[in-house]
């Protein structure tokens, strides 16, 4: 990381980038589903936005949200295969999953938000 010369200054596409990260976090923490729908709509609408910053944050947040969704489905399938929600082991998996994996995605979103606020592009460490 290099020192910034745009301390606190607005740059092109910053608003969209910040909104994308905020929607990503909202999808994980506050309003799941609906926030993702808005994020997806924004991404489709601004797919060809001239700002690389906005494009990168919109694309990356959609990608990471999809990963979160896929993992949630996989974990739930595993839980049902292990006998449903009525066993101690299941709760062990559920709680550890949310406190580690889900929280890790939240942390990545926080890093993304900080990057967007600093007018920097951000790539989630996901394939």
């Amino acid at each position: 990381m290099q020192p910034s010369d745009n301390n606190s200054q607005e740059c092109e596409g910053q608003s969209l980038a910040v909104i994308a990260e905020a929607l990503y976090l909202s999808n994980l923490l506050l309003v799941p589903g609906l926030s993702f729908a808005v994020l997806l709509w924004l991404h489709l609408k601004h797919r060809k936005h001239e700002s690389e910053l906005a494009q990168s944050h919109l694309y990356e947040t959609v990608k990471a949200s999809l990963w979160v969704g896929v993992l949630l489905v996989v974990v739930n399938i595993l839980i049902f295969l292990m006998g449903g929600y009525e066993s101690a082991n299941t709760w062990l998996v559920v709680i550890i999953y949310f406190t580690t994996v889900h929280s890790a995605f939240v942390l990545l979103g926080m890093l993304g938000l900080a990057k967007a606020m600093a007018c920097k592009v951000w790539r989630y460490p996901l394939p």
Partner: peptide, 18 residues
């Protein structure tokens, strides 16, 4: 705490010196 984390990373991202 959420804000504190965003704040810390934001400030380091916007830093003016090494």
């Amino acid at each position: 705490f959420f804000m504190m984390a965003v704040f810390a990373f934001n400030m380091v991202n916007q830093r003016r010196r090494e």
